[in-house]
Design a protein around this nucleic acid. Sequence first.
DNA 1: CTGTTAGCGCGTTCAC
DNA 2: GTGAACGCGCTAACAG
Lengths: 362, 362
Amino acid sequence: MATVTIRDVARKAGVGIGTVSRVLNDSPLVSEDTRLKVLAAIKDLDFSPSTVARRLSRGRAMAVAVIAPFFTRRSYVERLQGIEHVLSASGYDLILYNVETVARRDECLRSVPRVERLDGLLILSLSPTLDETQRLNDLGVPTVLIDTSSDSLSYVCIDDVNGAQQAVRHLIELGHTRIAYIGEYLDDNPFRFQPLVDRHKGYRLALDQAEIPFRTEYHRQGKYGWIEARRMAHELLALPEPPTAIFAYSDTLAFGVLEAAQQAGIRVPDDLSIIGFDDVEIAQYFQLTTVRQPLYESGARGAEMLLAQLQGVEQESYQKIVLPTELVVRATTAQPAKSKTSGGPIEKKIFADMANKDRISI
Amino acid sequence: MATVTIRDVARKAGVGIGTVSRVLNDSPLVSEDTRLKVLAAIKDLDFSPSTVARRLSRGRAMAVAVIAPFFTRRSYVERLQGIEHVLSASGYDLILYNVETVARRDECLRSVPRVERLDGLLILSLSPTLDETQRLNDLGVPTVLIDTSSDSLSYVCIDDVNGAQQAVRHLIELGHTRIAYIGEYLDDNPFRFQPLVDRHKGYRLALDQAEIPFRTEYHRQGKYGWIEARRMAHELLALPEPPTAIFAYSDTLAFGVLEAAQQAGIRVPDDLSIIGFDDVEIAQYFQLTTVRQPLYESGARGAEMLLAQLQGVEQESYQKIVLPTELVVRATTAQPAKSKTSGGPIEKKIFADMANKDRISI
DNA sequence: CTGTTAGCGCGTTCAC
DNA sequence: GTGAACGCGCTAACAG
């Protein structure tokens, strides 16, 4: 009940308050003798130092805030896992701020970064405005962006344009020319998610490079989620000249497409190729061909960068890391039916990469 | 840069330090005149009070810690979402502690509950030992358990025994007698997860009630995850007399069973019925018959209970809430092949319950 | 109404 | 080596 303080320990051990503090902080200037006495008293009283007080006096909060939009989405969960992993190992608390509305986004970016409240800030996918960036720098809150870039803040991200190109090129190389794209609303992007723009850009680029004309009717946009994606896919499949391949903005959307195909009795990949993006854990379950981005790693690396900034000397140079994406060919893409030379559908086989399997879960 | 403190504000506004504090805390004992002056100074200096200092002096941390095992698993994510939702609305910070090892479990339960560090504690699925419970009570840290019970701590949970019974009864009512169970290791339960024990108990109970003898070879246990579940399902299906129905400990495991069936060329539900537990979001995608437990709600309710404890008078009576489970029949269960009277396989139809759909994501 | 003072619990100088 | 002040930024209790 009554909080036991460092003073109680000192009294009980018959030493000064400073000595206890030294023991707590593993100072070498304590005789082994008294050290043991203090340790005994600590254990005896079941004492543990108040982090709050420690923070105040030492000036460090031993906590980093993580601002994440829609943290329940699989891709964010996996990034969060990476963050949590390195943070917990370092003794820093992880304070989670979930944002699902623009208002909340603004509020978080404004009120969370209090320098005495936390030592650092990790922002997922949200791109601070110039003003906000300015403010972060003024406040001196070490910040690392994950899944977006910035030119005055450290970040770790991927090249979404390139990733999307990989996806579409894969389709093109297989012989597809009627390639559709399903994604979130592009024009109305309230959270200003960069990947939304970039992946579509990559799609267009890959098309251009192969001199395949862009067809408006092959570009569908809607709200996020596999349900909407399923609807859009149905629309595509009902077209007079339906696409032979669909590139989905994310794996989750791809799952919706997968189901639409199933419902419509269209065989995948025989009659329709589907490719996603992210390589979320269940993508493997579905044997989904996709573009892998290192989600867990991006979180871990971001957290590590932040910790480095916190511990090391205030290195004024911002660090930028662009993680590589990787095409993961599984069972949902194949040559289009017409140009198929021989052989049946691609064997549905279990993907071999089971590494890190235990780290993730459906 | 240089942290601006309450003192700076006081000086700038030409008032005393206490007055500033009063303004900050909306005390009514400040003249509108000086109040405005202070407010101006605050805004001018872009000052915001140090939560850390505030915490120390006021004794309230404005934060609650959440200890969750394997928080990336879908069922935990959904509970966390409920927690986050009510916490953020109330202005409390959510500090996340993930535990994936027993050592970390013990450490968290020992060192996290520091009364000056947080105002309350939410523990997911982990059952504190008697000692730990005792300590929590001694420390006076308001605590609410979610997904476990206790007789000296508030909690919100479900009746797993009953839920499992619902599942197995459903199978029995369909005419199944060869009903297998797939779950996590029962004997070795390092985290002492109660559902592990209870769901198996429910399985046995339902069997007993229907006077169906328990068959050891129908009970498989392994590590958590759909991959292991798939392996176990394959073993079951290779039995001389394979089960006609499988009850999986969780939806995730059920997905593994689903895939095993697919790989083995066994039709679901025609030749094999599968039922899961939890009704995780994707369960709907798979048309999985399952026992629904209100995951989001359990988190939300738990957080609300905690807040009530924090704000209200220290009500010494512990609150216990047992949320109802509900059988959700979808497309993976049907009568066993033999006893099937007529009609083809159950139509695979889309489950109608789209409520709360936007709240959750794959 | 308002300025002042005494802690909150711990880290960090200092002298001893 | 060790103990005792001082300060971190703020709230609360007190005088005025």
